[in-house]
């Protein structure tokens, strides 16, 4: 190996070192946060002017796709934890999304609750970019009955853990509503993420 090649190798190694330090500092890896402009103007209802499709019969979801943030993940059933909070998908699989199995399945009338990890100890997970969604973003849920429920985002909001609006997030809806939840907001070393990001969508079409 020539001296030149060795020199290049050193340069690459040095860059790797710099990258490690920078990555370790975590300055580059903050999940996107929705702006206040993405919040509901008044109440969790479909955006005015957006079509509202008739709800489907209940059928379990099998897959979720959010093209704008490159999400394409299988779905699993979630129950409740001992403290009454929604369970989350198991650690170790960064590309799986859960839905609240005792609630409304996505596409049916009511509020379907869907949760995914923003990250794990190894890095970003399936809903890492959830906060980058905007009003009007499309969410697709493939269901067991073979149909695909297409949702349009109405709003995306951030809540502090200590002040989590249960009724707004988990409350009823008279249309086919979908709520996507992940961690977000501020981050503290001691307690982790200080809030949740919740994206609200409604059924606009069925394929």
């Amino acid at each position: 190996m020539s001296e030149k090649a060795k020199g290049w190798l050193l340069v690459v190694a040095a860059l790797a070192g710099v990258w490690l330090i920078r990555n370790g500092a975590g300055t580059q890896l903050v999940p996107p946060r929705p702006t206040a402009a993405q919040a509901f103007a008044d109440g969790p209802v479909p955006q005015p002017g957006s079509p509202v499709a008739d709800p489907l019969k209940p059928s379990a979801p099998v897959r979720i796709r959010i093209p704008s943030i490159r999400v394409d993940a299988p779905m699993m059933r979630l129950g409740l934890g001992p403290d009454g909070s929604l369970d989350v998908p198991p650690a170790g699989n960064r590309n799986v999304v859960g839905w609240y199995r005792d609630g409304t399945p996505p596409g049916s009338r009511g509020s379907a609750i869907v949760a995914g990890h923003v990250d794990d100890a190894q890095g970003p997970s399936v809903f890492y970019d959830l906060g980058a969604l905007r009003k009007g973003s499309t969410v697709e849920v493939v269901r067991q009955d073979g149909r695909t429920a297409v949702f349009s985002l109405d709003a995306i909001e951030v809540y502090e853990n200590d002040d989590f609006p249960d009724e707004r997030v988990y409350g009823a809806a008279s249309f086919a509503s979908l709520r996507l939840i992940t961690c977000g907001g501020g981050f503290s070393k001691e307690t982790g993420y200080e809030g949740n990001v919740v994206a609200y969508a409604h059924l606009t079409a069925v394929r």
Binding site: G110, V118, D119, I181, F187, K189
Partner: peptide, 26 residues
């Protein structure tokens, strides 16, 4: 089905714990 989802005792409450901050924490 329309008006009433599981609430209170039967529905979920509180925030979800879907992140550990592994990608953010120094």
């Amino acid at each position: 089905s329309s008006g009433n989802r599981p609430e209170g005792p039967d529905g979920p409450t509180g925030h979800v714990k879907t992140g550990v901050g592994g990608s953010v924490r120094p």
